[in-house]
Design a protein around this nucleic acid. Structure first.
Lengths: 222, 222
DNA sequence: AATTAATTAAAACGTTTGTTTGAATCATAC
DNA sequence: GTATGATTCAAACAAACGTTTTAATTAATT
């Protein structure tokens, strides 16, 4: 049950990042101690402060390491779509796939740690710790703006505020799909042991259904 | 900026529950100290252990206090629908409203604390702390089972596993809609200052769109 | 009014927390 | 080999944590 890694597994810095990433998912930021991280990484307690400065800076580096790459791929995909389409509008489903599909494919990478990170990311959107949310917002700002602009262009007849909200809802559905699977398992018994590609398919059709839904008026007592 | 409450505001027990609820949302469970709670509640440090036994039991009581009522209303609404429909099938939109709409209406109650609690609940589904998730699962078990059964009956042609997943997605979208509003604000600038009833309307149409979406097959490179 | 129970108060308990320090070890260059 | 810089190590730091204890106070009962 001791997940501590052999010391030869990459340099100390990387081992610390990997250990921290895993423990943050399991126990949260506050619930994970410096001793827990360095212990699992096979490093000395002081190594975190030496390599990263502080626990807070370590947390930021855990995110930056993967998030930069994720958003780079997203924007590259979007750029491909824009070039391919030329003057013509892009299908919303393609935009949604470039953003959410890319994340889901990263989440499907269990061995490389993408799965662990996406679980962490999903639950961090609503994390109370101010500095984490602020940091995430900065890292995300450009990417989200570009994708929202693309959706506005792709859906010129839909109110922009409505698109904004639905983008938000889609973020929520995706985050829970990745981060909170065990929560549903606890409630409902168990899922059939799912391969992640089916999750992609399932979630994408749900997201597009929500995105395209009519703006029906649901009062407070329908 | 000191949110500490006057001592006359209810009995000590209730003041502690209110203070804890608010602080858990702002700082998380681990990030909230006993001293912080009792300080805000205007009570002595030992009061939590006296009234609740431990911090862990306090957390459980914070949830139990509101969750029992929420699920009672949900099941009552479902029962109404079932009686009203008799042998006929119930419209899925009504079932969805009985579950998610009820939660959203509780979240719209800012003064009574429902809003605070729903934000807390939303972010707790994905909380790493094992005992909280286990406790939530137990509190939710019966209610979720009843609603899933109702959806199975209302949508006899749809694969049950698919309904299960979409219920999961809907939970995610709703939780983020309530708990993570500030996250999106940080990213996108700001929303128009929204009255909660429009959120109900917006989210419900999104949820139903997702629930009814065709099971299109989205491969990994569409 | 006396007695019992329930609640609040202040102080201290032993752990655990993140961080810092100064010496020891390692790698690399001259 | 010796010097230089980077890294690792064991040890210690004050601060904050949840909990417990014992005394003081309040409320209820007889």
């Amino acid at each position: 049950m001791n997940g501590s890694l052999a010391k030869g597994n990459g340099d100390t810095r990387s081992r610390i990042l990997d250990a921290a990433e895993a423990l943050f998912v399991e126990q949260g930021f506050d619930g994970t101690s410096m001793r827990g991280i360095t212990g699992r990484a096979g490093a000395n307690l002081a190594a975190i402060n030496y390599h990263f400065g502080s626990k807070e800076q370590l947390i930021q580096e855990v995110f930056r390491r993967r998030l930069t790459e994720l958003n780079r791929i997203r924007l590259a995909r979007l750029h491909e779509l824009e070039v391919e389409a030329g003057e013509a509008p892009i299908k919303p489903s393609r935009i949604v796939d470039a953003f959410f599909g890319t994340a889901l494919r990263m989440a499907a990478d269990v061995e490389g740690g993408g799965h662990t990170f996406m679980r962490l990311l999903g639950r961090t959107y609503t994390d109370p710790q101010g500095f984490v949310r602020k940091f995430l917002a900065e890292e995300y700002a450009e990417c989200v703006e570009r994708f929202l602009a693309a959706l506005y262009r792709a859906l010129p007849d839909v109110d922009r505020n409505e698109i904004l909200w639905r983008f938000h809802f889609m973020m929520g559905a995706m985050s829970y799909a990745i981060a909170g699977t065990d929560a549903l398992q606890l409630v409902t018994g168990k899922f059939d042991d799912e391969d992640p590609s089916r999750l992609v398919s399932r979630l994408m059709s749900f997201l597009l259904g929500g995105l395209r839904a009519p703006l029906a008026d649901f009062g407070s007592s329908p």
